[in-house]
Each structure stands twice: as structure tokens, then as C-alpha cells.
């Protein structure tokens, strides 16, 4: 039985866990949002909010987004609206400083950000009873 969702991530810890068939990209959060946007335009639906968690997209270097497993013929308007708003929100916050905060973390801090992102996605799946 295949997954009932697609997992798009730039979080190495999610990749390391490897218990989902995930799609890993070496990019920043805004870059990941643009990738997600093109998938939404191809008919995939957002299952998680792109701004999940309380850590701002200009602060955390990592994000995992769940999408529907199958693309529909019609684009999902809600998903499209949410990813567009997330891109604008993240873009505005990236512009707060010359170098966004997320580029400045040491390895220990990065590991914490990875753990929080993993915890949020595990919780989302647990609550939605999608975990396996």
C-alpha cells in the first residue's frame, strides 16, 4: 500500500528518519515554498499549513510540507491561496534583515530546528491517524 500523502522537506532529520517516501530538497524555506507552489499548480493539495509551527520562516531553516498523494485535474483554490500567502509572508520576513536570521545558526541550533520540524510533522500525522 502506498502513502496517502507526499512529503516535501528540506529537513535532513526527516530525511534521516526515512520512514516516509519523501522528497528531499537542499533549499531554504522560501525555496521549498516555491517548489510546493508548482506542485499545487499541478493539482496537488496541501495537507499541512506551509507555515506550520510557531517559528517564523525567516528564523527556521527547515520545513516539511505534506501534499495529497494524487493530483486532481482542477487546482485546489484553498491550497493555492495558502501557499501564495505563505510565500508573501516569508518573503516579507526575509526582507527584515540584509542576511535572514536562518542563515546564521550553528550546528547545535540547526539540530534543534530540525527536531522541532520533525516533531510537528510526526504530531500532524499522529493526530490525523496517518502515521504508520
Amino acid at each position: 500500500m502506498g502513502n496517502s500523502f507526499r512529503c516535501i522537506t528540506n529537513n535532513p532529520l526527516v530525511k534521516e528518519r526515512g520512514f516516509w517516501e519523501l522528497e528531499y530538497y537542499d533549499t531554504d524555506v522560501l525555496g521549498l515554498f516555491h517548489l510546493v507552489k508548482s506542485e499545487v499548480e499541478a493539482g496537488y493539495k496541501l495537507l499541512t499549513h506551509p507555515l506550520s509551527g510557531s517559528i517564523r520562516p525567516d528564523i527556521t531553516p527547515y520545513k516539511t510540507v505534506l501534499l495529497s498523494a494524487r493530483a486532481e485535474k482542477e487546482r485546489d483554490g484553498e491550497s493555492e491561496g495558502l501557499i501564495e500567502k505563505a510565500i508573501r509572508y516569508a518573503g516579507d520576513l526575509y526582507g527584515l534583515r540584509e542576511v535572514p536570521v536562518y542563515k546564521r545558526w550553528n550546528d547545535a541550533a540547526k539540530k534543534d530546528f530540525q527536531l522541532v520540524d520533525l516533531s510537528i510533522i510526526e504530531r500532524a500525522l499522529e493526530v490525523a491517524q496517518m502515521n504508520r
Partner: peptide
């Protein structure tokens, strides 16, 4: 009320 995982 927020409930999303570690520290949330």
C-alpha cells in the same frame, strides 16, 4: 490553544 508538537 496551540498543540503542534515539541514546544508547541
Amino acid at each position: 490553544v496551540q498543540c503542534q508538537g515539541l514546544m508547541h
